[in-house]
Every structure is written in C-alpha cells, then in structure tokens.
C-alpha cells in the first residue's frame, strides 16, 4: 500500500468555532492505482490531500506513505521525505515566478542535490513539449504550459506518490487530457495517484473514486 489514510479526522479551530473538515475518513491507494476524490465544495477534499501529503497533521488517524508515517518524522526530515516520495500538483500551479522553466522543474533537486536532476529535467520538459521554452519564466507561459511545468516538477525526483488538487481546474479540454494522461501513465508505471477533482472527465481517468460529503466518506466505488 503506497498511500494509507486510516480513520483520519482533521478539525480546524476557527474564530467561529471548530470545523470538522475531515471526519474519520479512511482511504488507501495501492501502487499502480489512480484514485479520484470527489465531492461538493467544502467537503474536505483539499484537507484530506494535505493530510496525506504530510503538510497537515490530523488529530486522529494514521497516515502512511510507502510504509512511513510522515508525522513521525521531524520537520526537516518530513520536508525531505516529501521531496523524495511525493509529487504535488495544484490548481494554481505554484511555480516560482523568478525562475525559468528549467529551474522551476529542477526546484525539487534543491533539497536532494542530485546531479542527475538536470538530465531528468531535460527528459521531462521534452516529454511535456516544453523543450523550446526552457529560458522563459512562468509568466510568459500559457496556463496549460504552466501546469505541464508543475507536472514535470512533481515528477522530477521520481516519487512513489502524486497528490493532485484539481490540476485541471483552470485548463481547457486538451490541456486537461494531457495532464490526466500523464497522471495515468505515472500510475500505470507503478506509482500511486490521489486526485482531488470536480471534473467528471478527470474521474473517468481514475480507476476508482472516493466521494466525500461533509467531511465524511460517502462512498468508494470503482
């Protein structure tokens, strides 16, 4: 099991009282699996994803990524663990505005310091059709191109797991399909993908979907 979320509960303590964003949810994703998380806005999808990514500590439940509980690690160790094991893709891309495309793709190598990063980055930008844009900054790219850069960045360190939060939310059909296809390929090659989405087309790419409702697991179907 690459991703294992076991009875996760996450409550936000806001000014207007506590909000139970995720309530006793268990989800697991095996190697080679592509799982979509769907549900209405505010049902806790993003929260669950951040918990899985070692970015948001739940007050209850167990998280395991490829057998390791990221919350058992120190802050710095957990950061490195994320760099090595998890690729993130977001709706807003979150590229570093002042780095060119190649440097953005190589950003995860900042942590691992791998010398082979450049070679892999070259292969990835080639694969995503960005080879002629290496020197450009994110601001000079279309949204679809930007998401492909983010995807290449997520794949750079060859993680076992990809967590994607509405990666196609800002994209048109063609670009969406390109991204989803890439995620599917990643899963097919033995990775685990947890995809949060509203997009029915995206759900079609997934092998299985998990439905959240009001922070709780409504159903899990293939």
């Amino acid at each position: 099991m690459l991703i294992s979320l076991d009875h996760i509960t996450k409550t936000y303590t806001g000014d207007a009282g506590p909000i139970v964003a995720v309530d006793d949810v268990s989800v697991s994703v095996e190697a080679g699996e592509f799982v979509a998380v769907v549900g209405p806005s505010g049902c806790g999808k993003t929260t669950l994803l951040l918990v899985a990514g070692g970015l948001l500590r739940p007050e209850n439940g167990e998280v395991s990524i490829d057998g390791t509980d990221p919350y058992s690690l120190s802050g710095e160790q957990r950061a490195r663990f994320r760099a090595e094991q998890i690729g993130f893709v977001f709706q807003q891309f979150h590229l570093v505005p002042y780095l060119n495309i190649l440097d953005n793709v190589m950003a995860p190598a900042l942590v691992t310091g791998e010398t082979s990063a450049r070679e892999r980055a070259g292969i990835l930008v080639e694969r995503f059709g960005l080879a002629d844009r290496l020197g450009h900054r994110p601001g000079q790219l279309s949204t679809g191109e930007r998401q492909r850069v983010a995807l290449a960045r997520a794949l750079l360190n060859e993680p076992r797991v990809i967590l994607a939060d509405e990666p196609t939310g800002n994209l048109d059909g063609d670009n969406s399909e390109q991204v989803l296809q890439a995620l599917k390929t990643f899963a097919d090659e033995g990775g685990a993908v947890l995809l949060v989405t509203h997009d029915p087309d995206a759900v079609a790419f997934a092998g299985r979907q998990v439905v959240l409702q009001g922070g709780q697991l409504a159903s899990s179907e293939s």
Partner: peptide, 11 residues
C-alpha cells in the same frame, strides 16, 4: 510551494 516540495525551513 518550495516548502511543500521539500525545502526545509532552514533553507
């Protein structure tokens, strides 16, 4: 995002 993709707070 840099923190999310693994950069430590020391970095």
């Amino acid at each position: 995002i840099l923190r999310a993709i693994g950069m430590g707070s020391r970095d």
